[in-house]
Design a protein around this nucleic acid. Sequence first.
DNA 1: CCTCCGGATTGAAAGGTTTCACAAACCTGG
DNA 2: CCAGGTTTGTGAAACCTTTCAATCCGGAGG
Lengths: 344, 344
Amino acid sequence: MTVQESGAEPRAAGMKDVAAAAGVSLGTVSNVLNRPDRVSPATRAKVEAAMTALRFVRNESARQLRAGRSRVLAYVMLDGSNPFFTDVAAGMEDTADAGDLSLFLCNSAHQPSREAAYLGRLEQQRVQGILITPVDPDAPLLGEIARRGTPVVVVDRTPGGTTHCSVAVDDVYGGELAVRHLIEQGHERIAFIGNHTTVGQVRDRRLGALRALQAAGLGPDRLVDLTTTALTVADGRGAGERLAGLPAAVRPTAAFCANDLVALGLLQTCANLRMRVPQDLAIVGYDDIEFAAAAAVPLTSVRQPRRRLGRTAAELLLAEAEPGHEHRQVVFTPELVVRASTLR
Amino acid sequence: MTVQESGAEPRAAGMKDVAAAAGVSLGTVSNVLNRPDRVSPATRAKVEAAMTALRFVRNESARQLRAGRSRVLAYVMLDGSNPFFTDVAAGMEDTADAGDLSLFLCNSAHQPSREAAYLGRLEQQRVQGILITPVDPDAPLLGEIARRGTPVVVVDRTPGGTTHCSVAVDDVYGGELAVRHLIEQGHERIAFIGNHTTVGQVRDRRLGALRALQAAGLGPDRLVDLTTTALTVADGRGAGERLAGLPAAVRPTAAFCANDLVALGLLQTCANLRMRVPQDLAIVGYDDIEFAAAAAVPLTSVRQPRRRLGRTAAELLLAEAEPGHEHRQVVFTPELVVRASTLR
DNA sequence: CCTCCGGATTGAAAGGTTTCACAAACCTGG
DNA sequence: CCAGGTTTGTGAAACCTTTCAATCCGGAGG
């Protein structure tokens, strides 16, 4: 009977084993790995041969232990199933790649407990920094982590204090853009669909909507609130039904949705109920996710520079490592992308 | 001038510092952490007090170094912006949570180089196991990693060999379901939209489609291939235009799309070109992502048990740790969800 | 009073890497 | 042939935790 290839390996080879096999010292192996130019070509070849022969895999734990810090960034995202956040993450990856770092994604799925669990693990892992779109941007935990030495950058929220850097988009302005556009299209009674009582984000967008009304000389009563519990497609569908149920006299002729998922849900209800978009109801979404342009009636939406948001966030995070670092709050300006859902 | 709170911290406190502060030995601190019942309540209280006072954070690197293995699972996904994969990841999180493990997500974005980079990092991190939907399921790298000792489970692909476990869905059957349904609806000339030449997955779905035709006594020429480069919404749009450009005599009356993104793109082109769905063109998608039901014309789609797929994959991964482990290939059965896009 | 027992605590070793001061070998030019 | 400089290579310490055999101590039983 021949020896099985797949038999229990004796033990993973370490640098020590490599050194022994190559007939050099431990320090030399380390040099091959970290400062190849300090090693003569001949020795380097010997060592590299030994490494492949022994199937050597560098032990990152030991490395980190020594270095005190890992080569990993992490993004704790609020909702992994929302394309907005995955696009933001893609931007972070751009920056991480450039700095030869890994980006790990964690999905808190709106649950504070999971968010906390991930944060704890990441801190213990001594990640180089944490990017996060938090459930609650003012939770004390974030400040504690930053104080204990792990840089934290808040993404797409602006925290009250200035314990850390943050990157966000001007949501008040975004809301203003959306509603100004609707007013220009002749609408004077506009639904606002979202959960502005619970999410700061959405509150700001609604605030912008009110500003736009005011600027046009219209009273705040022209904004009809259809409050949802979250910002999903299903919430949008539900709001659409409520909206359709309003008596014609008070029914808005346009809707500003707190995000595109809600807008898509609303759009679907409209299709079901034979309400024409934009003739019977104009719709503006928010985020301009890929599916917004791909909808049956392409959706007018407020676009945030998502990828850029992510890139910048990661850059700020890396900048934290530098000595005289000042926390910065970067705010990007959104833009309105006009499509068929508001153009009669 | 008062001392700044935020001044440069002297150094992160380790267990040694905690031990000194609490007036106990290092071993005792470790016991408080790992075997609290072995420590008298009084001592434990002292130690815990010292830990909070010093803001002690356990160093996971050192822990892993000693243990030889980390408490982390990782999923390297093919496309972070495709909701299908984020749903699969959610299922994995269910299992990971239950086992008190963290799940880190990595997005290869279809790029072999990024996939390889992540795999290398994960292996170096000594993660407990790797879940992966690979760009190429037969790439030798996966086998090498498994051989070196990091368990690998292939998700949503079935690799040729049996070097590792895998979890997949029967794509041939899924394709069969889709096309059988279209035939039942009276269609006899059906477009297949996807990149079957490059992706095994898609090849299987197409194979199923051919089987369904055969079972109905229709020749393989009834399947009209509209080949795409990838499976995005844009690809679907493009295919739609090509399809619309076909002379009426040969133009299919139904389309089976290799995934929902493509189907949504196709749907949009139909709307633009005033082709009615399903009257002028019936459409079946694949994956049944959330947006499929939310489309203007809700999409008939082949649903895969995504979350279950993820859960099972993670379970298989954990099972690898057990001594007498045999690699298993689990295959789930998809189901057809019929909606308006195929019902005249 | 002594022994023995068991629970609580200790001390030291181990785990794989990086770093750094130092030694060895080699080369340049006088 | 030697002084001085440069290139290579070495050895040991340090990073922080876990583990485990050994020690300590108070009390029960003889």
